[in-house]
Design a protein around this nucleic acid. Structure first.
Lengths: 202, 202
DNA sequence: GTCTATAGCTGGATAGAC
DNA sequence: GTCTATCCAGCTATAGAC
């Protein structure tokens, strides 16, 4: 068993779980303490305040989302191969952290400043401009059908991310259980790429 | 000016605005009272409790989302025309209520029971099964490319809904203002339909 | 470092005057 | 119906013993 974690790590792990599920406003320090198997006071001893603890969790979550995108986007494959990689990598990453999308989107809505602060702190944001220009160029050259680069990027993101945000909906409406959801996302790794590439074929 | 609304209506309007923005956990009764320009006590006088008030708001929001889908989905056009209608109608509807997606998805995650309760109350849910079977049939007949009906449905939904949930992200990352966002969604009404139809072309 | 106890505050809900 | 004042539960945060 990996129960050899320090108290600090246990707290972070617990905070991650609770905050990702309930968000900043919905989470209780008591929940986090319970999840970590320690006392409420210890949370403050190590991390001072709820906000400070939240910041750490959000930072890590946000990093996870963009760093993966960053590495994939800056390889030098052909555009189609790159799109396939992005889709595969992104869905894979989210499958390991299914709560991430809703968490991030929600907190950003609550506090738009958050995004700006993160950017100031992290200038190593994936070079979107480059990717967008490449899409434009491919359109000009006829490698792919002409399409607004931003719109295509939004489409890619939508198809990758949305199902994870809509998970409770799928559960409720189609009666999908965890195993079926897992299979669904697994299938999407190729299906979504096929879908996109077919859509932008010249 | 339409300032001829009864107090009850003012409260509901205010509650809608605040709850949609901040969610159940994040909203304060005081916020709602301020927004409505009345006293906190009046909220309880009319609607007893925060939860009761929230229920009304959620019900209305949820209704809006499925009723529109319901009417479009059960027309008898050809599949491509129908898809185009769905996309257009859905994006149009969300453009009027951009906070709806994140609000609903979020509350469903907080309380999955919510969905089940709503279904019990409303058996007039759009006939998804029928729509899914039609996609399957079209695949068999070669009218469209073969694709898992559920996956296609998820794709359609993703492309329509996600941009609204990701609005703060687009604002922050690409520096998109409200006007640009409005144009973007306007363009998506046709762009998304084209994208999908091209992707499922035989 | 970790716990118990508690201070101090925020926010939902109620009482009662008008 | 609408307001002011207030109650009380629940929560963050701290004090202090061990």
């Amino acid at each position: 068993m990996s129960q050899e974690k320090s108290t600090e790590e246990q707290i972070i792990a617990a905070a991650k779980k609770i905050f990702l599920q309930k968000g900043l406003a919905g989470a209780r320090m008591q929940d986090i303490a319970d999840e970590a198997g320690i006392n409420k006071a210890l949370l403050h001893y190590y991390y001072r305040s709820k906000d400070k603890l939240f910041d750490i969790v959000f930072d890590e979550a946000f990093d996870k989302v963009i760093s993966r995108l960053s590495t994939i986007i800056s390889t030098n494959m052909s555009l189609p191969d790159r799109i396939r990689s992005i889709v595969r990598g992104y869905i894979e990453g989210l499958a390991e952290n299914p709560h991430l999308p809703l968490f991030i989107l929600n907190e950003l809505q609550q506090d738009p400043e958050l995004l700006i602060r993160k950017f100031k702190a992290k200038p190593n944001f994936p070079n979107l401009q480059l990717f967008l220009m490449e899409i434009a160029r491919a359109g000009e050259q006829g490698t792919i059908r002409k399409i607004s680069p931003i719109q295509l990027m939004i489409n890619i993101l939508s198809l990758c991310v949305f199902p994870f945000a809509a998970r409770p909906l799928l559960k409720g409406v189609v009666g999908m259980d965890d195993v079926q959801f897992r299979l669904l996302t697994e299938e999407r790794k190729e299906l979504v790429a096929d879908f996109i590439l077919k859509a932008i074929e010249p």
